[in-house]
Write a protein that binds this DNA or RNA. Structure first.
Lengths: 210, 210
DNA sequence: CTAGATTTTGAGAGTTACTTTCATTTCATG
DNA sequence: CATGAAATGAAAGTAACTCTCAAAATCTAG
């Protein structure tokens, strides 16, 4: 590895061994190499070999870090975070309120990374079927986690059809919201969209909106 | 093509030219070859080459008929049928009633093919991520179509966030219902599950179900 | 029925994502 | 420093898909 390993970010967790730190670095190198290349040439035109080359690792290493090409551009899930926040809500808070709070919080956290990246990601979701697919896959995992949470909160069987349907319809609605946002050039406030989404899911289609 | 072209099903639309008839036959040959092989060896172990061989066509031909391997095991959509049925409902019928009626009808029509096949399909949906993914993709197309229908029925903007979210949450819920059914060994009445699903989506999670 | 236009097919070579294996290097630890 | 464990790279392999082009099957006029 001939890369100058000069830049070790200021407050980079110094507790970790050199090995762990290098792994994190490699992961980030692959990610940012991918983002750059995709912005330059588009997703399909970008091959793993190019990514490997720019990240200064071998193609095999790329696959060791990410099981598929799509996974490189997708975030590491917020799922655990959501669960945590959800469990932290007061037990007597009505479920819809908890849900709304936590979803807004998730968006907040999601905005931590550079805007460029989250926009690229949602754009790819809309434009590249493979990425969208992978995203949907991961949302079905989110659905299962939500079932769990709902079970804990409401004392219901998380495996029941009702809970599962509710969770998946929620997840489907949220996915659509992201796509809507991306398709409308990311204009406006995502939080506002989120509220409208949760209203539809909670109360059904409003009688008229025009 | 050395296959004995003896069996031209009884009432096989005789209006079509020989060319069209052959195309339909080839399509079906590829499909049933795939079903058979997948039942014998599993989905991943079944290659396009094997499928081509058993269907007595070349691999190139397989790809001419189906863009991806997953598409071979997935049904040709009911989407147009659903739209048609939906448009045929009386204009003054409340939307939830129309929806419920049409969904039951779609299930009815979907059961036309041999049980073996529809079970295999749902099983693959649960077990093979690629198939599930592809299915979700196609359901997002269904979602767009539903938006259209809802627009026609309710006079709403089919592009609005509200309609889109509603449609996708519906579609997500229905997908989960299929998976639930498959995971429970296809036992019981799908119609009953469908009713429970539509209740959840229409009225929210019932207060208690135990 | 034949000749020519059109469509469908098959053969083959090429691309690329992903897998697997194994030898080499890099880090951790006593 | 030495020894073991983990990370890496090189290389060969698989299989889904794409493209191109020539041969074969079907359709249509005359």
């Amino acid at each position: 590895m001939t890369a100058p390993d000069t830049s070790c970010s200021p407050a980079d967790n110094p507790r970790l061994g050199l090995r762990e730190r290098k792994k994190i670095k490699t992961r980030e190198a692959i990610r940012s190499a991918t983002y750059a290349l995709v912005e330059e040439q588009g997703y399909d035109a970008t091959t793993i070999e190019q990514i490997a080359e720019r990240a200064e690792v071998s193609p095999s290493t790329v696959f060791r870090y990410f099981p598929t090409k799509e996974d490189i551009v997708l975030t590491d899930e917020y799922d655990p975070l959501i669960m945590e926040e959800l469990r932290a809500r007061p037990a007597d808070e009505p479920w819809p309120d908890s849900l709304r709070y936590v979803m807004h919080r998730a968006v907040q956290l999601g905005m931590k990374e550079p805007l460029r990246v989250s926009r690229l990601r949602t754009r790819l979701m809309v434009e590249v079927p493979a990425v969208r697919s992978r995203m949907m896959e991961s949302m079905s995992a989110t659905g299962r986690m939500l079932c769990q949470a709902i079970g804990e909160r409401t004392g219901r069987d998380p495996q029941s059809l009702e809970v599962r349907v509710y969770a998946m319809s929620l997840v489907g609605g949220l996915m659509e919201t992201s796509m809507y946002w991306a398709e409308h050039a990311h204009e406006g406030d995502f939080d506002a969209l989120l509220d409208r989404t949760l209203d539809v899911i909670g109360y059904g289609l409003p009688p008229e909106n025009h």
